[in-house]
Structures are given as C-alpha cells and as structure tokens.
C-alpha cells in the first residue's frame, strides 16, 4: 500500500484499469439484464399492438399511437378470468395445506429424534424429485374412475356457491397438497435443524407435550419460513400445468385453470394471434409476478432447497 502512495503514476494506472474493469463489469451486467428481460419486454410491447403494428414495427419497440390497442388485454382477460378464479380456488388452499403439513412433518422428523426417521425422511426427499409422468396415469385413474368426487358429493352442488366443477377443484387441491408436501417438509426441516435442540429438550423435561411445544415454540419461530413456503408453493402450484392437463383435461371445462386456458389461447381459424397470446401470458403470470417482485428474497430462499 505504502509503495503505491509513493508512485502516483502507478496508482493512476491501477485506478484506470480498475475503472475500466468496473465499466466492463457493469456493461456485462446490463447486457445480462437485457437478455433476461428481452422476452418479457417484447411480449409486453407486442401485447398492446394492433395486428397491423405487429407487422410494421420492430418487435421490441412500443407501437405508435395509431398501433396501440388494449383490446387484446380485454379479450384475454375475458377468456382467462374464470380460469384465474379456478386457479385461486385450488392454489390458495393447497398452498396453506402444504405448508401446514410440511411444517408438521418436519417437526415430527427433526425436533423429535427417533430411529428409522432417516428412512422416512429419505422417502420425503425422494418425493420432491419424482417426475409427475410416473404417477399421472394412476392419478387420473384414481380421480376419474375410483373416486368420482362429482358424483359422491352430488348433495353439495345444490348449495349456494357450490357447483359441480368444484369437485375437480377439490381433486386438484388434494393432488397439489400431496405433491407439495415433500418440498415443504424439507424447507421446514432445513430451518428446524438450526433451532435450539436444548430448548426443546428442556421443554420436554418440563413436561410439555409435543403438541404444546409445536404450538408455543416451534410455530412462532417458523413464521419466516412459512412466508418462504407460501411464496414458493403459491408460484409452483399456480404455474403447474401437467395436473391441469390430465385432471381437468379440457380448456372449456368450467374448472379449467389459468395455465390450461392459456395453452389454448390465441389460435383461431383466422390465424395465430400473438398480441392476444402475450396479453394472456401476462394476465396468467400477473399473480406470480406480483408475489415475486414483492417477495423476491423469500422466493430465492425457497428455490434454494
């Protein structure tokens, strides 16, 4: 250090090369921002273009006033709105259930130590990684041939607010909950492992029941992890497609989810309507985008299994 102070030219040179390096760094970072945002940006500007403007303007530039329209957004909203409702109906309950079950399982497998839990735990971890293809045939068989919720619950459909397609929603809630449990369990376990073991032990010696410890100590300490799990699971379930395709099946089903409807949006006899598709993509992504922008940190923690 003292060397450099004595030789200003050298210091200047270092500074220059430092500045150059920083400039290169920021240019790279900015380039990467462009790369990651480009598909989204071009989607956004395209969604507000008339078909005319789509042909006449560059894909990443916004349209002029004459080429501007919100019609596609309005149309996409009409097409997707009941799918949004359906997606909310199954995403929120299954997110909550996943989190509760995950927290319980993690508690039972972490803070209480017993032999054989490793084996059970291994089954939970492996459950995260199962390709859904390996289960969808039995799953569709189970729901459509064995359970037939819509018929079994027929007495419910006469009630106000309940309709037959809610049977499908219920099936999706159970399905998403079941497949969400493993990841939630592992997320909670990661936190519970860092909790103070001695505290639990002390409470037990104090005669507190496991349930009491869970409620009074573990749950309050898990609040931040619940936030992570909610955010992560909400996005996962909202974005999911394969279960929608195989359990709901049809885009026109009253229970169709938003991803399912989006997959069939914008194809008509008159041609593929890209502005409409883009508008639809944004509407379908809106809830997850909002959640993501507000809670990016929790999301990042969630993905880092």
């Amino acid at each position: 250090m003292s060397h450099e102070e004595e030789r200003p030219e050298a210091r200047n040179a270092t500074r220059r090369s430092d500045a150059l390096r920083r400039a290169a760094l920021y240019a790279t970072l900015a380039g990467l921002v462009a790369f990651y945002l480009a598909p989204i940006e071009t989607g956004l500007v395209t969604s507000i273009k008339t078909s005319e403007a789509v042909r006449n303007t560059l894909p990443f530039l916004p349209p002029g006033l004459s080429g501007f329209t919100l019609d596609k957004w309005a149309f996409a909203f009409d097409a997707l709105s009941h799918g949004m409702v359906n997606s909310v109906l199954f995403t929120i309950p299954s997110t909550l259930l996943c989190a509760v079950f995950g927290s319980m399982a993690a508690y039972g497998l972490t803070l209480v130590d017993w032999r054989g839990q490793i084996a059970v735990l291994a089954l939970f971890v492996a459950g995260i990684f199962i390709p859904y293809q390996a289960v969808i045939i039995p799953l569709s068989e189970f729901w459509s041939i064995w359970v037939e919720l819509d018929e079994r619950l027929a007495f419910l459909w006469a009630l106000p607010l309940l309709e037959e397609h809610h049977a499908t929603i219920l099936e999706l809630i159970v399905t998403h909950t079941a497949y969400g449990i493993p990841i939630c369990t592992i997320l909670f376990r990661a936190q519970y492992q860092t909790m103070s073991w001695e505290m639990i032990e002390a409470a037990r010696l104090d005669g507190a029941s496991l349930w009491r410890i869970y409620r009074r100590i573990v749950l309050p300490l898990s609040v931040p992890m619940f936030a992570v799990v909610f955010i992560f699971q909400f996005t996962q379930i909202w974005n999911e497609f394969l279960f929608s395709l195989t359990i709901i099946r049809s885009v026109s089903d009253p229970a169709a989810s938003v991803t399912l409807i989006l997959s069939g949006l914008g194809t008509a006899l008159e041609g593929v309507d890209f502005p409409l598709r883009m508008a639809g993509a944004f509407i379908a992504a809106l809830p997850t985008l909002i959640v993501y922008v507000l809670f990016a940190d929790q999301f990042a923690e969630g993905v880092r299994v």
Partner: peptide, 18 residues
C-alpha cells in the same frame, strides 16, 4: 351442448375418452 375447445378434435377426443 358442451363445447370442448382446441384446434382440431384433439381436446374433444380426449375429453370424450376420459
């Protein structure tokens, strides 16, 4: 009269099959 969407008959056939 229940309309099953999608191009061609792919979705209809699938819904009927189900």
């Amino acid at each position: 009269f229940r309309a099953i969407g999608g191009t061609g008959n792919v979705n209809l056939d699938q819904a009927v099959a189900q």
